[in-house]
Amino acid sequence: MSLATLLVLADGRLPAGGHAHSGGLEAQVSAGRVRDLDDVAAFLRGKLATSGLVAAAFAAAACRRPGRWAELDGGLDARTPSPALRKASRAQGRALLRAGRAMWALPPIGREPHQPTALGVLAHAAGLGPEEAAVAAAHGTTTGAASAAVRLLALDPYAVHALLARLAPACDRIAGEAARHADDAVNDLPAAGAPLLDIGAEHHATWEVRLFAS
């Protein structure tokens, strides 16, 4: 396992479409539920424990068994009731594959898989293991929304990064828990839902004017 390779995969500057997604934050900012740094912290903790855990578990599972990507994708479909979130996840999966193909030799995978599935398959192709795939997924869950928070709320970027540093142990813990599921049957993988992320994503998709794709 190459730590530098993991950093390449988890780098926020990876051209994989993430910058256009707020991870559900824009909807909650607009609804008035996220106004300041403390709210962002609570948002990120909740997101990490729910969709972060699911993404990390599926990334770990896809890394362990890339040939089962279609079955894992079906599992993510069943865990993603919001069509807007399914679309956002598949758009980011497709973009990630585009970047991944330029970096590593990828095994066969569909054109537009869910983002965690694509991430796991990339991790596998890069010679990384399920735990690394999981930590990249969990990390990406928090950093994408944190970067959107800086832009949407004009927060102090140092304060936001201090928050990310405080969340790092939680990221590791979630990733560890996720990786322990890497061999589970798809139905037994974590399915922690986040009702406000679902509802917010659907509402966001109806707006005429928005800054982020999701």
Binding site: A42, F43, A49, A78, N187, A191, G193, A194, P195, L196
Partner: peptide, 18 residues
């Protein structure tokens, strides 16, 4: 599997994502 959902609620865990 059409719908797979888990929800955990506990004191002091209110998150504007959940």
């Amino acid at each position: 599997t059409l719908y797979r959902h888990e929800l955990a609620v506990a004191p002091d865990t209110g998150s504007p994502a959940v």
